[in-house]
């Protein structure tokens, strides 16, 4: 009797330790994955930062990430030669584009979520369909249109263009958010005396805020980084109009082998937007995982 109990105990203990070993293995593999991922995704940025802090002569020699006598000269140089201005332009374009996108898509998302009308489904699918058309495919006619409208070489034109290009995705995402809010809220608001404008403003806007945040963050990052449209529309307009991406690209072509300066420019192109995103990525990821975006 006692012997049997012991064996069972032994067997059980063996089981536990096996599954524990297996678990440790999985944990180990997971940490390995984290380590490799961080190395692969972080190292290039760290390296460019390191380069940007060196003196022109120190770029060829050492592999240390922390240069021996760091200098901010390259930053001073590139900021003076236009980068600051381009950054301001980019900020201006991005902020106004995001504002415009929200002003246009929020009502439309509300409309698609709250009205049932003939052709609604087809219209929604058509909007989604435009998601499949990359902007690069229509860059030529867009250039033509903007030229005809006299909107090339202007930030206004670029902003309008960004709004137009970003509506489909933003609309879908926001509509998904509105759909998660029960229509009883609308009804309660109606009975409390709200018309639809007031319902949207006072009752629905706050609950869809997480969705609006996702759309805003996403579009800010996108318009901040955008290159093709800016390059195509603004290039002839002179350096004063450049956005950061295109400025840095042009810069790179001019500077040829001044690597510390190029690196400094790249760092300026990376760091502010990454800080912005890292600070807000919680809202972004939460917004995406909350289930409003259906797989």
């Amino acid at each position: 009797m006692a012997g049997r109990t012991d064996t069972t105990f032994g067997g059980a203990r063996l089981d536990v330790s096996w599954s524990q070993i297996r678990r440790y293995c999985y944990d180990g593999v997971t940490y390995l994955v984290y380590g490799l991922a961080v190395l692969f995704f972080l190292f290039p940025v760290l390296w460019v930062i390191s380069l940007s802090l060196r003196t022109e002569g120190a770029v060829y020699t050492s592999l240390e990430l922390l240069p021996s006598n760091p200098s901010l000269d390259s930053y001073r140089e590139v900021l003076d030669s236009g980068l600051l201005r381009w950054m301001r332009n980019t900020l201006f374009v991005a902020v106004l584009s995001v504002t415009g996108i929200l002003l246009v898509t929020t009502p439309a998302a509300y409309g698609f979520s709250r009205f049932r009308f003939r052709g609604r489904r087809s219209l929604l699918l058509a909007v989604l369909g435009f998601q499949m058309i990359s902007p690069i495919v229509i860059v030529l006619p867009l250039y033509d249109i903007m030229r005809t409208l006299g909107l090339t070489e202007s930030h206004t034109g670029l902003i309008l263009l960004y709004i137009g290009l970003q509506i489909p995705f933003s609309l879908w995402l926001l509509k998904g958010y509105f759909d998660t809010i029960p229509t009883e809220l609308d009804k309660a608001a109606r009975i409390d005396g709200c018309n639809r404008l007031q319902t949207l403003r006072y009752v629905l806007l706050r609950p869809v805020m997480p969705g609006i945040a996702v759309v805003a963050i996403f579009n800010f990052v996108l318009t901040w980084s955008e290159f093709v449209m800016a390059y195509t529309m603004l290039s002839p307009g002179g350096e004063d109009l450049y956005t950061l991406s295109m400025g840095i690209y042009v810069f790179d072509n001019q500077l040829a082998t001044q690597w510390t300066n190029i690196a400094a420019a790249a760092v300026i192109g990376i760091v502010p937007i990454v800080i912005f995103f890292v600070a807000l990525q919680r809202y972004f990821v939460r917004g995406l995982t909350d289930g409003a975006v259906k797989g």
Binding site: P182, E184, K187, A188, P207
Partner: peptide
Amino acid sequence: MVFQNYALYPH
């Protein structure tokens, strides 16, 4: 009117 899911304004 009173609704089944309360329909209180969440914010």
